[in-house]
Design a protein around this nucleic acid. Structure first.
Lengths: 163, 163
DNA sequence: AAAGATTGACGCCTCAATCTTC
DNA sequence: GAAGATTGAGGCGTCAATCTTT
């Protein structure tokens, strides 16, 4: 990892340069992806992600807590979202038979149709803004870089908002 | 359809793998940085960025519209934020002498103190989560990758939210 | 007491409407 | 009319409190 360059208080020129560019991506890319989904599907990125997660689960069903964990979201946030998705008919909730505390969320037929209708344009935007902007080697590098950052994020401190 | 890596409708295995990891970073890293700032400085990332921008400007002053452009934020968003920052005493607004339509935002002494007090911990978190998680070569790669993505973002379509 | 989930209050952002100055 | 800026309404997320089941 970071061997010889450990001045704690500031960033060197090269590091600062890299961080400024990366921070721009961190600001603007999620906004751009959200904008595309909002425009063409009336969905935000988190809503899309939740529908996608459910579509890939057995029975198209997942516990609320499991869903929250996979989306790195608080249970509260997911609960609010589930209210809205349920109102729109994309998902349905039912108490879990095996554990009276838990709630299962299920993707409805309408929800699946919504997702499959929205996916191609979203994937195309991801391809346009990220994948096709990079060389094959850079795509590989990006994977490795992301993994490393994620490992720091995971071990940093306990994820809050679980209550 | 599926020649090379230009199938428009979906992502190949390697691309998907890279995207999944990168999307995780896109979700979690901004949240982690916001959390640190919120905890230790009662600031969010956008507020910090605005203060930092002003601190680097001549006279510690910038037009609202210029500030919004540099932060890739809508004028509306910046205006709401400026209300809050002004209430807290970090900035001051005054009409621009040269153009009656424009408003200048100035970082106050208190705002500068707030920024300098908050910066070290924030930089340390950036270093911990990003810079020190990567090799020197990866930091360089990340710079190049970010530049490429930014160029797509810039040319994509006109930035909305200017009204 | 802990885990799972939900709710309401409050804060921030988006969107459309509005006002002033150029 | 366009540019710069602001405002209010409504939507979404966070936080703290609450309820139920284990």
């Amino acid at each position: 990892m970071g061997e010889g360059r450990s001045e704690p208080e500031w960033l060197t020129g090269r590091e600062l340069d890299a961080w400024m560019s990366f921070a721009g991506v961190l600001f603007q890319l999620p906004a751009a992806l959200d904008a595309q989904l909002q425009r063409e599907a009336r969905l935000n990125h988190f809503e899309y992600f939740v529908l996608a997660m459910l579509s890939g689960a057995p029975e198209r069903t997942l516990r609320m807590s499991e869903l929250a964990a996979r989306a790195s979201a608080s249970q509260s946030r997911l609960s609010h979202l589930a209210n809205r998705l349920e109102d729109r008919g994309w998902i349905r909730r039912a108490p879990c038979p095996h554990d009276g505390r838990a709630t299962n969320a299920t993707l409805t037929e309408a929800g699946l149709e919504k997702l499959t209708a929205s996916a191609p344009a979203h994937v195309a935007e991801v391809r346009r803004l990220v994948i096709d902007a990079l060389t094959d080697a850079q795509v590989e590098e990006l994977r490795g870089i992301s993994r490393r950052i994620l490992s720091r994020l995971g071990s940093g401190r306990a994820t809050p908002g679980t209550g």
